[in-house]
């Protein structure tokens, strides 16, 4: 979907995500207005690590088949962040981002980590003895629910927010109970 510029009818080419005190504001600007605001590719490339922009762009287009690779505007279901947001602020929004954007991130990670692509080393001692996949699935669901709650609060849908808050609370309670039940006998 193409966004029009916030300040005129031209097509927006620069999408800025600003987070202040937990409140995310997204602005869409055309080339001219982005340049006026001191944004845009020229501005980004001044502070982005060398090659990051190219790595992200090539990773999200040519290097991976479009069906499997999310574009710059695809958002993570866990936090709502897009690859473009990451490109702007160099920070991922949640652990789900690593799964959703794995293809694109692989290139960025390898570049930042001098060619390394896989973890070698310590594995955390799990507090509970859930299977890793089961745990990951549950956490992904929890993240998505929290994302929806944030969205509901942002659009001031307080009825939905209250309902989601209850659901999250019950879900967390269930998670704790299931963790306790899977603790091995001393």
């Amino acid at each position: 979907m193409h966004h029009p510029c916030d300040k005129c009818d031209a097509k927006a080419t620069c999408h800025q995500v600003e987070i202040f005190d937990g409140v995310k504001t997204i602005s869409h600007l055309c080339d001219r207005h982005a340049a006026e605001a001191g944004l845009g590719a020229a501005c980004l490339s001044a502070w982005a690590p060398p090659g990051l922009l190219e790595a992200l762009q090539s990773a999200s287009t040519a290097a991976h088949p479009p069906a499997k690779s999310p574009g710059m505007e695809t958002s993570c279901p866990g936090c709502g962040q897009t690859l473009r947001d990451f490109h702007m602020q160099h920070l991922l929004g949640c652990s789900e981002c690593y799964r959703i954007f794995e293809g694109a991130l692989s290139v960025v990670v390898e570049r930042a980590q001098k060619g390394a692509s896989h973890h070698v080393g310590k594995v955390p001692a799990a507090p509970a003895h859930l299977a890793q996949q089961e745990r990951a699935d549950r956490m992904a669901v929890l993240l998505r629910m929290r994302g929806r709650l944030d969205q509901a609060v942002r659009v001031e849908d307080y009825r939905l927010a209250a309902s989601l808050r209850d659901q999250i609370s019950r879900f967390e309670q269930g998670l704790r109970v299931s963790l306790l039940h899977k603790e091995p006998a001393p």
């Binding site: 920070l91 930042a112 390394a116 973890h119 070698v120 080393g121 507090p127 956490m139």
Partner: peptide, 21 residues
Amino acid sequence: LELAFSRRFGFLTACPTNVGT
């Protein structure tokens, strides 16, 4: 506490320059 971890990327961090160990 349950920590964010993936088999491929290791300990997950907000910035990929810290991911892994």
